[in-house]
Amino acid sequence: MSGDGCVAIASDTRLGQQYQTIAMDVPRMFKMHDRLFLGLTGLYTDTQTLYNLFKFKLSMYKMREGREISPETFANLVSSTLYEKRFGPYFTEPIVVGLDKDNKPYLCGMDLLGALACEPDFVTLGTSTEMLLGACETFYRENMNEDQLFEVVSQTLMMATDRDCLSGWGGVVHIISKEGITTKTIKTRQD
């Protein structure tokens, strides 16, 4: 979700195999650099593979270009990487979140084939995407500051994951602003 000069990304930390919970502390959001996060929902093996792949691609980019990649460029990179596997895709749906060089928030969600959907306000993906959408739609306001943004993001995440049996077991929120990254862990219903 975007705010005024800041942007937040949040996810739950449950790993499950259908109804069996296997782990309660898996990271699903990865810091690509100080102003860019990649969130990956879906099949966890693909999440791990893609994270490693993009870590490598960004290192190469940094070496060649001598600078950090911008969020928009990275989103396009993710999109084309996913589309390369058009007929045997990665079963993950990524969210790319970051601040561009003017500290303007950049948010973008994709489906498993890489179709980009760039939004100015918020993007939701995962098993409880509809519940998140309804909650975000109701509580989002433009130009929130960091504290308000954190409040809204954490409440909407909890609201939606409480109604989804496949999500939950704790949450993590990262807020990116020009000052840096703040990470907060939320204690949710442990069920």
Partner: peptide
């Protein structure tokens, strides 16, 4: 149809669930 979108909002605002 709109249950999934609206129920979490009501849980939060009426039931104070979070």
């Amino acid at each position: 149809a709109g249950t999934k979108l609206m129920q979490p909002v009501f849980d939060n605002q009426v039931d104070w669930a979070q």
